[in-house]
Amino acid sequence: MPNFKNNTITLTQFSLLIYGTQSGIGILSLPRDLAEIGDTSSWISLFIGYLISVIASIIIIQVMKKHPQDTIIQLFRRFFGKWLGSFFSVCWIGYTTLGMFLITVTSIFIINTWVLPKTAPYLILLIITIPSFYLARNGLRIISRFSVLVFFFTSWMAFLFMYPMFTGNLLNLLPIIKDGIMPIIKSVPNITFSFLGLELLFIIYPFLDDKSKAVKGVLIANGLTLLSYLVVTFSSFIYYGPYEVLEYVWPTLNLVKPIEFPFLERFEIIFLSFYLLILATTGIPYYFASSFSIAQLLGRKDHQLALFLILPILYVTFFFFTNSLANLDKLGSIFNKVGLGFAFILPVFLLGYGWLFRLFRRGKM
């Protein structure tokens, strides 16, 4: 059993850790994804996605409440036995490792495209993985402190995203619900994908020092994520309009290009340097979740060996992976579909299965 008492996290760390995991990568293309389906009214679906995300988070907490010292790996074995539980655990490990890989290659692509076009991708990969390894090695308390630091260190970026609102056209948001409710409903799946990260509650929950505040924590985290998405969506729609925004792969990054200073050229490079820290708050928790799950599956107290095992897999996979927009979209689509199962379907299944499990065992686990 891992020693959670010596590695607990506070409510603030808990909330900002989840928020960082959710908002890192989904925010990049969200305005374009919404405009493709829901047009000018697609921002309304953000509130629906928020509600679904909060419900899923609360369900995960209800599942974990019954066994507050267990992670998802231990729950799988408790509910399904050694062999079937191990199979589900391997699926979970594969998913979290995929999440880490997706965020890593996306970060490399952004750096190669916007900042260092002539730098070898493998060198960038090395630069990214070294600090990620050291943060993940020191446990969830250090990772959560890093998330809190990044949140306050990059909070000024929200005002930059809001700046285009004052130079754009508010009429781009009109008319509201011009094509009926169906485009809004069709936009909801894209929104739920953007709230992925909440599934790491299966790993994070046992580390929370005051578990009675877990629901409050997920409300804060999902609320911050919703606010961030509303800011970038409104800014993109107001500045570009719902049709021009479709011309950009990552409209969120393009929002800062019009910002100029007489003493500074290419401000977006400085902006991206800070934004990479936000991406790190998304990727590192998946790295930790993967290695920590491997350690629990193998019955080891220390997850450092698992951290070392993941790195060669990452390097070899990257060698055969062509880092292009098309492949990133395909990889992201796979991750989103699998994440939908782990974040929104699995909690409901475990809640019902756990109830039946305790019923047939007469409450004796």
Rank of each mutant, 00 (worst) to 15 (best):
residue 150 V to M: 11
residue 142 I to V: 14
residue 281 T to I: 10
residue 101 F to Y: 12
residue 288 F to H: 15
residue 181 I to A: 03
residue 235 S to M: 01
residue 10 T to F: 14
residue 165 M to G: 02
residue 224 L to P: 08
residue 348 V to F: 07
residue 324 S to A: 11
residue 135 L to I: 09
residue 20 G to P: 14
residue 77 R to F: 04
residue 164 P to I: 06
residue 245 V to Y: 06
residue 304 Q to P: 15
residue 96 T to Y: 13
residue 282 T to E: 03
residue 338 V to A: 03
residue 284 I to E: 02
residue 266 R to S: 08
residue 64 M to Q: 08
residue 195 F to T: 08
residue 108 I to Q: 02
residue 117 P to C: 12
residue 332 G to Q: 03
residue 286 Y to I: 06
residue 75 L to G: 06
residue 109 F to C: 02
residue 168 G to Q: 05
residue 302 D to L: 11
residue 83 W to D: 12
residue 278 I to G: 14
residue 227 L to G: 13
residue 217 G to D: 07
residue 1 M to H: 15
residue 131 P to W: 02
residue 186 K to L: 10
residue 232 V to G: 01
residue 196 L to R: 12
residue 281 T to S: 08
residue 316 V to T: 12
residue 16 L to T: 05
residue 164 P to G: 10
residue 256 V to C: 10
residue 1 M to G: 10
residue 128 I to P: 00
residue 242 P to N: 00
residue 261 F to Y: 11
residue 259 I to Y: 04
residue 179 D to A: 11
residue 92 W to Y: 15
residue 283 G to H: 04
residue 329 D to Y: 04
residue 68 P to N: 06
residue 206 P to W: 01
residue 273 S to Y: 07
residue 72 I to W: 07
residue 49 G to R: 02
residue 165 M to L: 15
residue 78 R to P: 01
residue 328 L to M: 03
residue 52 I to Y: 09
residue 202 F to A: 10
residue 183 P to D: 00
residue 101 F to Q: 04
residue 26 G to F: 06
residue 279 L to D: 04
residue 259 I to Q: 08
residue 343 A to T: 00
residue 111 I to V: 11
residue 94 G to T: 13
residue 5 K to Y: 15
residue 284 I to K: 03
residue 140 L to K: 04
residue 201 L to M: 09
residue 310 I to F: 03
residue 364 K to P: 05
residue 296 Q to C: 10
residue 210 D to I: 06
residue 319 F to Y: 14
residue 163 Y to D: 13
residue 185 I to F: 13
residue 90 V to E: 03
residue 335 F to V: 00
residue 227 L to A: 14
residue 30 L to M: 11
residue 128 I to M: 04
residue 125 L to M: 08
residue 245 V to C: 01
residue 244 E to K: 12
residue 179 D to K: 14
residue 319 F to P: 05
residue 58 I to N: 00
residue 169 N to T: 09
residue 93 I to E: 06
residue 89 S to E: 04
residue 137 R to M: 10
residue 233 T to K: 00
residue 126 L to Q: 09
residue 47 F to H: 01
residue 31 P to R: 02
residue 270 I to N: 15
residue 1 M to P: 13
residue 153 F to C: 09
residue 55 I to M: 08
residue 203 I to R: 05
residue 137 R to V: 05
residue 279 L to T: 06
residue 189 P to S: 09
residue 173 L to R: 00
residue 34 L to D: 00
residue 31 P to N: 03
residue 50 Y to T: 07
residue 99 G to C: 07
residue 77 R to Q: 14
residue 265 E to W: 05
residue 268 E to C: 10
residue 18 I to A: 08
residue 217 G to M: 10
residue 79 F to N: 10
residue 172 N to Q: 07
residue 229 Y to Q: 04
residue 303 H to V: 12
